[in-house]
Design a protein around this nucleic acid. Structure first.
Length: 501
DNA sequence: TTGGGG
């Protein structure tokens, strides 16, 4: 029995009100209102309109019209919009108007004007119970059962055709002002709800291409004692270069590789309630805007953006080669201005450092130094505290290195301290000294640090406004400063690393 | 009424 047999038969059966369900190819040509069954091949979550309704759009297909199918717009109060669970589900619509838009047929259903629908699972063997219905009562005859069974068989044998977009990129390819992205929702951060700021963290397994950074402003007024004790992940307080990351317990559930892209809705949060994706979902964002903030790429969800369902068989996974832990944009094999001890130790991503199960541990990473504290090289060394019994003796006080680097790789950012002997080793050939009395040493160190921070110079010798730090290898160790709050006081240090300069 | 693959 063909689909049109079923459809025609439906008009003849039974005694009460009858609906003739048209094959979509026929519905497209029919004047006035039509009824049809369709398999959903594309679906966009409901969006507010300028009017009082929400608009939910989708593409429906059947055996008579499967490429590209029929675009369907549903106007309805937010609470009545069809909420489709998976592509390939089946929707039955009554009283839909088909018209033409830009030389293609287009169907419009208006729930305020008598349109109604039921929504069913599209997979074989599932129940015939609608998982959503626009009205408390609806017709359901034997022929409905047959149609659903017939469509399910067809759906299982026919891959759904979805349109591709010229704007579709992976996170590693984000460049343009607007883009589309297929990605997994890792976390929806509502911590800043009082200010009604929500951040949607997404991932697709690829690394964002590193951005240039602004030159650092002089800012040496922070107190060292508070620096080491400040929680390294306390994002909102970080100075100059922010470390915006979800809380550690959330981060621990994230994959170890690939950039986490924050998507920030710049529409009223209320208008998003119906379309806010859930943790774990794979979705397609359409028409996101790009913003770069402190050298990190962010996406903005605007009024023009849309959130679409993605078919569940979409699987994206980075090939875990020997370079799986290395940034996708770095040279292979990696080039580095530094040399580390333990060259045989495998690289870790900064996310692996941040989420490692042990508080104290040692790692080797490929990172960029995106800022230093202090910013002025003449403050890189501090006097050793003079012990009581030495006060008044002849010996001049010694100096040690005391610098904090902000490190970045595609997976995260953290602060790492370069202290004492580890600092002297890092700044190879320049032992700690009273830098205020040694301008030639300051000059030598400045040249090193500017290389590290990726400063570029204009033709007249002035530093360019943008800089592009190179990749360097570093050994990192994690430790804590407070026995009673090990995780809260966790810090990182650079060790076993030499920067010949 | 509302919007529509930029």
């Amino acid at each position: 029995m063909s689909l049109s047999d079923i459809h025609t038969w439906s008009a003849q059966a039974g005694g009460r009100e009858q609906y003739e369900y048209l094959p979509l190819r026929e519905a497209v040509w029919r004047e006035g209102e039509v009824h049809f069954y369709g398999a959903i091949s594309e679906y966009e979550k409901p969006k507010p309109t300028r009017g009082s309704d929400f608009l939910c759009t989708m593409t429906v297909v059947d055996m008579s019209l499967d490429d590209p199918g029929l675009r369907l717009h549903v106007f309805a109060p937010e609470a009545k919009c069809p909420i489709v669970k998976s592509l390939g589900d089946i929707i039955r619509f009554h009283r839909v108007k088909v018209s033409n838009y830009k030389d293609s047929p287009q169907a419009v259903a208006n729930l305020n004007k008598g349109s109604s629908f039921i929504l069913l699972d599209g997979k074989n063997g599932n129940s015939y119970k609608a998982y959503q219905k626009s009205h408390p009562t609806f017709t359901f005859e034997h022929h409905d059962l047959l149609t659903i069974e017939h469509m399910r068989k067809w759906i299982s044998a026919h891959p759904l055709v979805t349109r591709t977009s010229d704007y579709l990129v992976q996170i590693r390819g984000i460049k343009e002002n607007y883009f589309d992205l297929c990605c997994k929702i890792l976390y929806v951060d509502d911590r800043y709800l009082p200010q009604r700021v929500t951040i949607i963290y997404v991932w697709d397994g690829t690394d964002a291409t590193p951005r240039t950074l602004p030159v650092l402003q002089e800012e040496d007024s922070l107190d060292w004692a508070t620096l080491e004790n400040r929680a390294p992940l306390d994002t909102l307080e970080a100075k100059q270069i922010p470390l915006p990351l979800p809380p550690r317990d959330v981060l621990c559930d994230f994959p170890p590789i690939g950039t986490i892209l924050p998507i920030i809705p710049v529409v009223p949060v209320d208008s998003l309630s119906g379309q806010m994706p859930q943790r774990g979902d794979w979705v397609k964002f359409r028409n996101l805007a790009v913003r770069t903030h402190a050298g990190m790429v962010e996406a903005l969800l605007t009024r023009e953006s849309k959130i679409s369902l993605l078919s569940t068989d979409t699987q994206l996974e980075r090939i875990l080669s020997e370079y799986g832990r290395l940034p996708q944009s770095s040279a292979k094999p990696p080039q580095s201005l530094t040399v580390t001890d333990f060259e045989n130790v495998q690289f870790s991503t900064l996310r692996e450092v941040l989420t490692h199960e042990k508080v104290t541990y040692k790692f080797r990473c490929l990172v960029r130094v995106i800022s230093t504290f202090p910013t002025q090289v003449c403050n890189f060394c501090v006097p050793l505290p003079v012990s009581e019994d030495k006060v008044g003796t002849e010996s001049s006080p010694g100096f040690v290195y005391g610098v904090r680097f902000t490190l970045e790789d595609p997976t995260g950012r953290l602060h790492a301290f370069v202290f004492g002997e580890d600092g002297a080793k890092f700044f190879n050939g320049h032992p700690a000294a009273d830098l205020y009395s040694d301008s030639s040493l300051v000059g030598a160190l400045e040249r090193k640090v500017q290389k590290l921070l990726g400063y570029k110079y204009l033709e007249d010798g002035r530093p360019a406004l943008e800089r592009d730090p190179p990749w360097i290898k570093v050994c990192l160790k994690s430790y804590y400063t407070d026995e009673s709050k090990k995780w809260e006081s966790r810090c990182y240090r650079v060790f076993g690393t030499t920067f010949p300069g």
